[in-house]
Nucleic acid binder design. Structure first.
Lengths: 201, 201
DNA sequence: TCGTATATGAACTGGCTAGTCTATAATCGG
DNA sequence: CCGATTATAGACTAGCCAGTTCATATACGA
């Protein structure tokens, strides 16, 4: 009976790191330092996982990047879910999302920048698996913008264009912030974007 | 008299590369392949300059990056000069500039992306000289946007905000394009941006 | 022709990297 | 306690890169 409820333990020596947290930690590292700027020693130090474990479990460093991009996109997806759950108007939902992004971008304590944008520019010709993850992250971002605009309804062609404009605004704020722009500058971008996407009657 | 008109020749063995073109070539290489992705062998192969000449003339690879950023910014400055010389309205001048950027970004033959944006994201904590060049490139871009808006007049605080919105739009298009967006998607961003910055009465 | 000045090319250094390999450690079932 | 299984630590390989060094080449002025 005890066996019936016990977690299944794998056979050999147990892992010395937290499997569930590993990809999150890797994601944060790539986010902070970039893919090229993160060495495998950085990863083993931060996660506690043995060097060999990474290769056994995931293949290689680029496969880890693909996973990290997935995690990064999932986090944003969850944020949009939370915003949609509040039942705001599209304009309010978009404003909340842009404001949260700007707050994070201007926060000196948060990891700077954006893993999706940084990787997009850093890897113009990525390996197939990374390219797929990148496409899903970038395409997914536009889709989340469409969800904010339509409240999960079907986007019109016009909505798709508005979602592209919103995506460009966020991407643009990422670069601006990394270039040293302060929160006020980002707010100017948000204000202009909201006026463009939700034209005042 | 011949000596009077002859170009001054330096004393020793002449250089085997075109000095005037060197930084342009370096700029294009960094533009295409990124700073980290461009090796010194790439630079010597492309320019014909000896490895040692780079170090003697410029110091090191990062100093070259700083120069390349200056060249890149100068090119854009010159483009804006040419646009301003046409005597268009601010809206027309901005539209022409954004259109030219989008055309280039969507052109499969042009070097992809944007050296300024890419370097901004790739080097979050650059060395002092690179940081200065990057600040001048990024700050200069906003200033060029202000010039387009004011026709070289004094920008109002409102103009400065509009220039930030334009800068964010271009930065955003850079990331969008690198993520695979087509020319039509970029046009949607341009249209929304023009409406936001030049609100239809 | 000779001395000086400058650039070249190629070898070399030192360091870092991703990825592999192996002996050992820690857990299991029996 | 034993054998099987899995993970670990960390040494090791092989390659790449930035930057330096030095003998050699090519120009000058006198």
């Amino acid at each position: 009976m005890s066996s019936q409820f016990r977690e299944e333990r794998p056979r050999g020596r147990p892992r010395s790191f937290d499997e569930a947290a590993l990809i999150d930690t890797v994601t944060d590292l790539f986010w902070r330092k970039g893919f090229a700027g993160t060495s495998l020693s950085d990863l083993t130090d931060a996660t506690g996982a043995a060097r060999a474990s990474f290769y056994k479990l995931y293949g290689d460093k680029e496969a880890l990047l693909a996973r990290a991009l997935g995690t990064y996109a999932d986090r944003f997806h969850a944020r949009v879910d939370a915003t949609l759950a509040k039942g705001l108007s599209p304009r309010e939902a978009v404003a909340e999302t842009l404001t949260a992004s700007a707050d994070r971008l201007a926060d000196p304590d948060a990891p700077n920048g954006c893993l999706r944008c940084r990787t997009t520019l850093e890897q113009p010709e990525p390996r197939a698996d990374v390219a797929a993850a990148l496409d899903r992250a970038n395409g997914g971002f536009v889709m989340q913008m469409e969800r904010l605009l339509t409240g999960d309804g079907n986007p019109t062609p016009r909505d798709r264009q508005r979602a592209l404009a919103l995506t460009a605004a966020v991407n643009g704020m990422v670069v601006l912030a990394e270039a040293g722009a302060d929160r006020g500058a980002l707010q100017a971008v948000i204000d202009a974007t909201l006026d463009a996407v939700f034209p005042p009657a």
